[in-house]
Structures are given as C-alpha cells and as structure tokens.
Amino acid sequence: MSTVSITADIKVLWPKGHSSYSPGSSEELALISIDLLVKTMGTQGAQKFIEQVLERYQNEHKGTSDTDRE
C-alpha cells in the first residue's frame, strides 16, 4: 500500500447549515465521502454507487489477499 498525503478543505452547504472537513489521508477522505453519500443518497443509494465504483477495480489486485496488501 502506498502512502498518500492529502491537503483538502471540504465545505458542504446544507439547507439548514454547513459542514467543514479537512481530511489528511485517503482513508479519512473516503470516510467523509461515504458519510456525504449516505446523507444525500440514503444508505441503499450509497451502497449501489460504491458497488459500481468497486466493480471497476475488482480485478486490479487479483491474486493477492487483503493481508498481502497491508
């Protein structure tokens, strides 16, 4: 697994306020993204969207287990 450094300032405007995020890693960015997807699309909509994204990469690490990539 490679190390990635992220510099981002995410501001989300909601009808009743706003949220701000500053992820420092790809993992934090992913969690924020998933949280926003669920809030805007609902759980099922977010799951379907994530499944579509993961399908693109299903063969990328073929032949390696999850523990091999850590």
Rank of each mutant, 00 (worst) to 15 (best):
M1N: 07
S2Y: 04
S2Q: 07
S2R: 13
T3Y: 03
T3A: 03
T3K: 10
V4T: 12
S5M: 05
S5T: 06
I6L: 15
T7P: 00
T7G: 05
A8G: 04
D9E: 02
D9S: 09
D9P: 00
D9L: 08
I10K: 03
I10F: 02
I10E: 05
K11I: 07
K11T: 13
V12N: 05
L13P: 00
W14T: 06
W14F: 12
W14K: 15
W14A: 05
K16P: 00
K16A: 09
K16E: 04
G17I: 13
G17A: 03
G17D: 07
G17L: 14
G17S: 11
G17W: 06
H18Y: 08
H18I: 03
S19P: 00
S20A: 09
S20P: 00
Y21P: 06
Y21N: 13
S22N: 13
P23G: 14
P23N: 09
P23H: 11
P23M: 09
G24C: 07
S25A: 05
S25R: 05
S25N: 09
S25D: 10
S25W: 01
S25G: 09
S26H: 09
E27A: 10
E27S: 11
E27V: 02
E28N: 05
L29P: 01
L29G: 04
A30E: 09
A30P: 00
A30G: 07
L31Q: 11
L31F: 02
I32N: 09
S33R: 08
S33Y: 12
S33P: 01
I34D: 04
D35P: 01
D35I: 00
L36C: 04
L37M: 15
L37I: 00
V38P: 01
V38Q: 15
K39S: 13
T40K: 13
T40I: 07
T40P: 00
T40E: 14
M41G: 01
M41D: 10
M41V: 01
G42S: 04
G42N: 10
G42D: 07
T43N: 06
T43H: 10
Q44W: 08
Q44L: 10
Q44A: 13
Q44V: 05
G45M: 04
A46F: 08
A46Q: 06
A46W: 11
K48W: 05
K48L: 15
F49V: 02
E51K: 14
Q52S: 15
Q52Y: 04
Q52N: 15
L54Y: 08
L54W: 07
L54F: 13
L54V: 12
E55M: 09
E55R: 15
E55S: 14
E55L: 11
E55G: 06
R56F: 04
R56Y: 06
Y57K: 08
Q58K: 15
Q58C: 03
N59R: 03
N59S: 13
N59P: 00
E60H: 12
E60R: 14
H61P: 00
K62W: 03
K62S: 08
K62T: 01
G63C: 06
T64H: 13
S65V: 04
S65T: 08
D66V: 06
T67K: 02
D68L: 02
R69G: 03
E70R: 13
